[in-house]
Computed example of a mutant assay.
Amino acid sequence: MPVETDIRTKIIGAAQKLIARYGYGKTTMADLAQACGMSPGNLYRYFPGKLDIAEQLAIRAFEEEVSALREVVRRSDLSATERLKLFFCTQLRVTHAKLNDDPKVFEIAEIIRRERPELTNQNLARIRALLSEILSAGNASGEFNIPDVVNTAETIQCATLKYHYPQLFTQLSLAELERELREVMNLLLQGIFCGKAPSNGAKQGRNSQN
């Protein structure tokens, strides 16, 4: 690993620990410099400001989420219906786990959403692309009847945003959120199933508790 990359990684790691302890607002570049054993001036050589470090933390979190969702898309042992339900269940569980492990991480998410909206939009687009793969697979298998996969992926994403943003969890437990999500998915699936009765695999996916 190049020296500069190694130092940037060290800074990002230190920032994650400090922000988890004190919050984004109370963590200063001087604090980060001290934690990394360097001068503030040297720190600015690697990151122009605190927001740029927050962006890297957000990118790291986005990558973890997309990686988990990509694994669901690749589950060839599951029907498209099963993968679709597991896709959103996984997204909810990843988000909920982050909330429990590090509540202050969502302070960063809110700042990035406000200050660097293009980054949030890019992540949503990546998730939609993965979702489109599942919908296309469902069309190919005869489970779904979706004339416009891209538009449908966007619509489903909009309908399930509550389970992606902890600000909308309304203090519900994970079990309660999963129950809600199952009901939402059942309604959405009714709209995209092929005209014939779902296959056994699709029925199993609809009844799965995941």
Rank of each mutant, 00 (worst) to 15 (best):
E63R: 15
R75T: 10
R60A: 11
T81A: 11
F62M: 04
L84W: 06
L84F: 14
L84K: 03
C89R: 10
T90N: 02
C89M: 12
F88L: 06
E63F: 11
C89G: 07
A58S: 10
S79T: 15
K85I: 12
R74W: 09
I59A: 08
R75L: 12
F62C: 00
R74C: 08
T90D: 01
S67W: 12
E65W: 15
F88Y: 11
F87D: 00
A58H: 13
S79A: 14
A61T: 14
L78W: 03
A58G: 04
L92P: 07
K85Q: 13
A68E: 11
A58P: 02
R75K: 14
L86P: 00
A68P: 07
F87E: 00
Q91C: 06
F87G: 00
E71D: 14
F62Q: 06
L92V: 07
A68K: 06
V66P: 02
R83K: 13
A68L: 01
E71P: 09
V73K: 02
R70W: 08
T81S: 10
T81L: 01
V66T: 07
K85W: 08
K85M: 13
C89E: 14
L69C: 06
L86V: 01
S76P: 02
Q91H: 14
S67G: 03
R74D: 15
A68C: 03
R83S: 05
R83D: 04
D77I: 07
S76C: 04
K85G: 14
L92Y: 07
A68T: 03
R60P: 06
F88T: 02
L78P: 01
F88M: 06
E65F: 15
L92F: 07
F88Q: 08
R60F: 03
L84C: 08
S79R: 13
R74Y: 07
S76H: 10
L92T: 09
D77S: 14
A68M: 02
F87H: 02
E65A: 13
F88G: 02
L84I: 10
L69V: 05
F62D: 05
A80Q: 08
T90K: 10
R74G: 01
L69Y: 04
E64Q: 15
R70D: 10
F88R: 07
Q91D: 13
L84P: 05
A61R: 15
F88S: 05
A61V: 12
T90Y: 01
R70I: 01
V72N: 00
E63Y: 12
L69K: 04
D77H: 13
T90S: 04
V73A: 05
S67E: 11
E64N: 15
E65G: 13
R70C: 02
T81N: 03
F62V: 00
L69D: 07
S76K: 03
V73N: 08
S79D: 14
V66R: 04
T81G: 09
R60M: 06
A61W: 14
Q91P: 11
L78I: 01
L92D: 10
R75I: 08
E64C: 13
R60H: 11
R74F: 06
L86R: 10
E71T: 12
S79E: 14
L78K: 09
F87K: 03
S67C: 03
F87T: 00
K85A: 15
V73Q: 03
F88D: 04
L86Q: 06
R74P: 00
F62N: 02
I59F: 01
K85V: 13
